[in-house]
Computed example of a mutant assay.
Amino acid sequence: MSTPPEVLFDRYFHAQTPSMQQIYQGKDDLECLEIPGLKEILLRLQQGLNFALANEREVPEHRSHPPFHFDYIRSSLSNAIAFRHDGYSFIGVTIPLIETLMTLCGRLSRSIDLLSLLGLDAAEDISDGLGLVLFHIAIFFIVSHEYTHIVHGHSVMGFEGSTLRHEIHDDGYAGGLSEQALEADADSYAIYHIMGNWIAGVERSEGLTVLNRNTISLADQDDLLFSLVVVAIGAYFMLRPVPQLDAESVYKLSHPPQAARLNSLMDTAIAWCRQNRGDLAQRMTEQWFNRLLSHVASAIWEANDSRHQNWMQQVDFLRSADGAEYLGKLRTDRDQYRASL
Rank of each mutant, 00 (worst) to 15 (best):
40 E>N: 07
314 Q>D: 07
204 R>N: 09
47 Q>H: 14
329 K>W: 02
259 A>D: 03
94 T>S: 14
25 Q>E: 12
83 F>P: 01
185 D>C: 14
24 Y>W: 15
138 A>I: 07
170 D>C: 03
12 Y>A: 07
47 Q>N: 13
268 T>E: 15
61 E>H: 05
267 D>Y: 00
2 S>K: 05
61 E>G: 02
206 E>P: 02
268 T>N: 13
157 M>L: 14
4 P>L: 08
208 L>H: 09
20 M>F: 13
312 M>D: 10
316 D>T: 12
164 L>W: 05
2 S>R: 05
1 M>S: 13
58 E>I: 11
341 L>F: 08
308 H>A: 13
81 I>G: 00
15 A>P: 01
124 E>A: 13
1 M>P: 09
74 R>W: 06
140 F>Y: 10
203 E>A: 15
209 T>H: 11
33 L>V: 05
132 L>N: 10
219 A>D: 13
35 I>T: 14
214 N>D: 06
335 D>R: 13
269 A>K: 00
78 S>T: 08
203 E>C: 14
148 T>F: 01
156 V>D: 12
144 S>G: 05
313 Q>A: 15
149 H>K: 01
269 A>F: 06
74 R>T: 06
96 P>V: 02
275 Q>P: 00
281 A>T: 08
89 S>L: 03
341 L>H: 09
39 K>Y: 06
124 E>V: 11
197 N>M: 06
91 I>V: 14
222 D>N: 15
66 P>N: 00
68 F>R: 02
96 P>Q: 06
318 L>P: 04
274 R>H: 13
115 L>N: 13
331 R>F: 04
276 N>Y: 14
82 A>Q: 03
191 I>A: 00
188 S>V: 02
254 S>M: 12
19 S>D: 14
163 T>F: 12
324 A>N: 13
81 I>D: 02
40 E>I: 05
177 L>H: 10
290 N>V: 07
261 R>W: 12
180 Q>M: 10
281 A>Y: 05
136 H>F: 12
288 W>T: 08
42 L>I: 04
